[in-house]
């Protein structure tokens, strides 16, 4: 019951999903449509519980155990609850506010305002840090130790130079050559690798359906 029934559900639902594509019968298609729009969507919506629940549990445990930097966990918890309350009670459209007003005078604290002025700068800047680490790593580790590495380096240089508009003035043929590298040898390599990846995904999907791959069951409840 604890293992076999979920495995059976995967098999049956999986075969139905594949069949819905292969059998263009109106009844099959309409059942598929209802399944996608109602069953799958509602279940997917509840999956947020896993993410939010795990975050909250992680931070509550950190606070309880007074783990390293535990006071910062309060920031996450308070920010989560405040933004959720603003979003849930304040509504999505600022022109049709919910039961919680999200504007005092000209000052807005609507969920979109929090998104644009807190979430966007934080997320964008965290990723912008990668520019610096990449530059530092390239300086320290990118060495033309052998022919293959030199080839990689040469292709990277051509691409970097070919990608910027100034090169068209200084070395006119380079941007087109860079585009050729992308369109021909790069395409060949990526397609060859892609076949392997696609076959791997296909095999894994099949293993999940047939109950050979069971990692998703997790531990416990055998």
């Amino acid at each position: 019951m604890k293992r076999q029934l979920p495995l059976l559900i995967v098999l049956v639902v999986g075969i139905f999903a594949a069949a819905a594509f292969l059998i263009p019968h109106p009844i099959v298609r309409s059942v598929d449509e209802v399944f996608r729009n109602d069953v799958l969507r509602i279940i997917a919506a509840f999956s947020l519980v896993l993410g939010v629940g795990s975050i909250l549990r992680h931070h509550f445990i950190k606070i309880k155990r007074k783990a390293a930097h535990w006071p910062f966990s309060y920031i996450t918890i308070v920010a989560l609850f405040i933004s959720a309350i603003i979003g849930l009670l304040g509504g999505i459209d600022p022109n049709r506010p919910g039961i919680l007003p999200t504007q005092v005078g000209g000052f807005s604290f609507h969920i979109q305002t929090l998104f644009s002025n807190i979430m966007v700068p934080l997320a964008a800047t965290m990723f912008a840090l990668l520019a610096f680490f990449m530059a530092s790593a390239a300086y320290r580790a990118f060495r033309a130790r052998n022919f293959e590495a030199t080839l990689l380096l040469a292709a990277a240089f051509i691409l970097m130079l070919g990608a910027v508009p100034l090169t068209r003035i200084v070395i006119p043929p380079l941007p087109d050559f860079a585009e050729w590298i992308l369109a021909v040898p790069n395409t060949a390599a990526k397609r060859g690798i892609g076949f392997g990846v696609s076959l791997g995904i296909f095999a894994t999907s099949l293993k999940i359906l047939l109950g050979i791959e069971r990692g998703w069951l997790g531990g416990g409840g055998s």
């Binding site: 509602i42 919506a45 975050i55 989560l80 959720a84 929090l114």
Partner: peptide, 28 residues
Amino acid sequence: RFAEHLFVGIANGYAITFYWHRILVPYL
């Protein structure tokens, strides 16, 4: 560290908002 923790909190609050208003309310 403050910025990092703030981001995680707001991101989850934002997601809760839309999962509620745009999935659970209209479809359920």
